[in-house]
Design a protein around this nucleic acid. Structure first.
Lengths: 167, 167
DNA sequence: AGCCGGATTGTTACATGATAACCTCTCCCT
DNA sequence: AGGGAGAGGTTATCATGTAACAATCCGGCT
């Protein structure tokens, strides 16, 4: 597995990335203040990196960027910042890829669903409220209380599907 | 983290484990025949081990058992057998735990949902058809086609919930 | 100001999880 | 007999994630 995966597209379809990045970062900062959390330089920088790339990144890939910018060079530096972001809803962990992605909706209560294209590796965060409700119901039937959930789907994004049909 | 995790209970509540194990194995064998798949000694033994334990096991934990029984001693031996079982629906991968668990319903088309207790580590496989439907709908809204899904929930099982309330 | 204590960030070292590449064997088909 | 596919064994290595400890920062208190 290469450390630098190729994930050309930011999501399904184009968008104003500069705007969405700045906007999400601003909302994350407001949210940190609201919750009394400290968005320190490393943490903030990690979030920025995830937002800039707008894709799922491995911890070591993030670490390489941090190290190049004068932060620590050891794995815990990246993992701690990433764990902080995940624990507080600023980022998500995509387990299927052993990777992390910035949350596009910090502050909003939401149940992220990740759609991972097996062809181009793009990862999209979809709204999963109905999925989460169904999950809660299934769990409740077993007497189980859900605290956190990972919902990830592997398949084909619209672009790659079209390409497969064409060939 | 220890390699031999303690997971005393087989699932939520007691059950006739000997029976469910034998039964599931028999169904898996029938299914292998139906699909023209070779359930070779290693593969079969791995499935048995997963069924006996009736819990999520790490690949290296399975490997230790195989090695002790005269099979190969190297990781690929375990990973290949586990991958075979997962690819063909005889077992599932629980990504949050980096572990594998026997499928309790081989052959039936089903969308497994894993309920993982954060207190006692028990893993239960719940029926997730409605969850999967909701997921398919969410994906379709983005033009995405789901091929495989991982749906995992972390929370409290009934027993541990009762224990927390009591204390 | 000066001090305390917890949170943060850095380090070293290591544990754990997963694969690549290659070789041999067996079975089955021609 | 020859040969190819599939399975399972090996060695070696890579990738991912943590434990434990030290130094430092920072806010609150006297």
């Amino acid at each position: 597995m290469t450390r630098e995966a190729e994930q050309p597209q930011p999501a399904f379809g184009a968008h104003d990335h500069a705007h969405c990045t700045a906007d999400t970062l601003a909302r994350a900062e407001a949210e940190a203040v609201r919750l009394g959390l400290r968005l320190t330089p490393v943490r903030r920088r990690v979030l920025e990196i995830l937002l800039e790339q707008h894709r799922a990144m491995g911890a070591y890939e993030v670490l390489d960027r941090l190290a190049a910018e004068g932060f620590g060079h050891q794995p815990p530096v990246a993992y701690r910042a990433l764990d902080f972001l995940v624990d507080n809803g600023f980022a998500h962990r995509v387990r299927r890829l052993n990777a992390f992605a910035a949350c596009m909706h910090p502050g909003e209560t939401h149940a992220p669903v990740f759609l991972i294209c097996r062809s181009c590796n793009v990862v999209a965060e979809a709204a999963g409220q109905p999925v989460r409700s169904a999950l809660d119901a299934a769990a409740a039937a077993a007497g189980f209380t859900v605290e956190r959930a990972n919902i990830e789907a592997l398949g084909l994004c619209p672009e790659c599907k079209a390409r497969e049909l064409a060939s």
